[in-house]
Write a protein that binds this DNA or RNA. Structure first.
Ligand SMILES: [Zn+2]
Ligand SMILES: [Zn+2]
Ligand SMILES: [Zn+2]
Ligand SMILES: [Zn+2]
Lengths: 145, 145
DNA sequence: CTTGAAGCTATAGTTGCTAGAGACATTAGG
DNA sequence: CCTAATGTCTCTAGCAACTATAGCTTCAAG
């Protein structure tokens, strides 16, 4: 059995994050020691590692919740899991497209500025006027990574 | 003079967002009509459009705050503005690199799954074991777009 | 003049954590 | 065995950048 600190170390997850996952029901309530400290089994470590890896791949906690509950039913079809992964891939691809457009706009701005006064700064100028942009960089959906 | 609704429409920004920007001091306190409703000038529209465009390009509100205060000093050197833009470009490039790695991992997962039961699902399997991944997709910094 | 849209304030919720306070538990050294 | 350091406990609040809700007031059209 691992303490929460050891578990976090083993899985590469910070201690408060583990408690947070438990709080939102992504991890089951941990066993407790006689002194009320959380104790984790090898299974718990696997589950946390799964979560961590899925987070690293950009899945939302909601998606991970679904993936975990699917992985608990080994006899079911994996179509649902595949669909979640495909949706995540599509999400990543759309962000990639957007970021690529942003990158070229930012590059243009930076390259075009001759570096004088603010009054002549191409960066400020472009920010004030989207018609100076070459691409259609709209602002649809957010989300990190 | 524009009402907040017209301003939002003209700039492509939702009304509550405008009020939020005022609240955090990104927009100055608006003039008020006799009935206490906000009224905006053409200048205010330009400022909001600047904010909107910078947001679209992924700048943080903090960065935008700095860019706005720079743009109010036309005689200063634009080095600071250029630096902010370069930092944003670097940020975008690093996210792009990360997302590209994610994309190929996700593609691999999705392609490799033969589509049977969960027990044999490659998606579930890979999520449980990063050593099945080909690339080093770590989880450094977040932030949207 | 009445009605419905638009505006007002204030508060709480979103996602995925992170940081702090103050109290208890465990462990290593002396 | 005692103590000090570290680890863990709960609870609360905070981060970005909004979005949504409730319960008002004001405005504009018919
Ligand atoms: Zn410049
Ligand atoms: Zn633009
Ligand atoms: Zn599958
Ligand atoms: Zn991996």
């Amino acid at each position: 059995m691992l303490t929460i600190g050891k578990l976090g170390e083993a899985a590469g997850v910070k201690v408060p994050t583990i408690r947070y996952y438990e709080q939102i029901g992504l991890l089951p309530e941990a066993e407790r020691s006689s002194g009320n400290q959380r104790l984790y089994s090898r299974k718990a470590l696997e589950r946390l590692a799964f979560i961590r890896h899925a987070r690293d791949l950009g899945f939302s906690l909601e998606a991970i919740r679904d993936l975990l509950s699917l992985s608990d039913k080994p006899d079911q079809s994996c179509a649902a899991a595949d669909a979640i992964a495909k949706a995540q891939l599509a999400e990543v691809e759309s962000r990639l497209a957007r970021l690529t457009a942003l990158k070229s706009e930012l590059e243009r701005m930076v390259v075009q500025c001759a570096g004088g006064k603010i009054a002549d700064c191409r960066v400020i100028e472009v920010l004030g006027d989207h018609s100076l942009c070459s691409a259609d960089h709209r602002h649809p959906e957010p989300e990190p990574n």
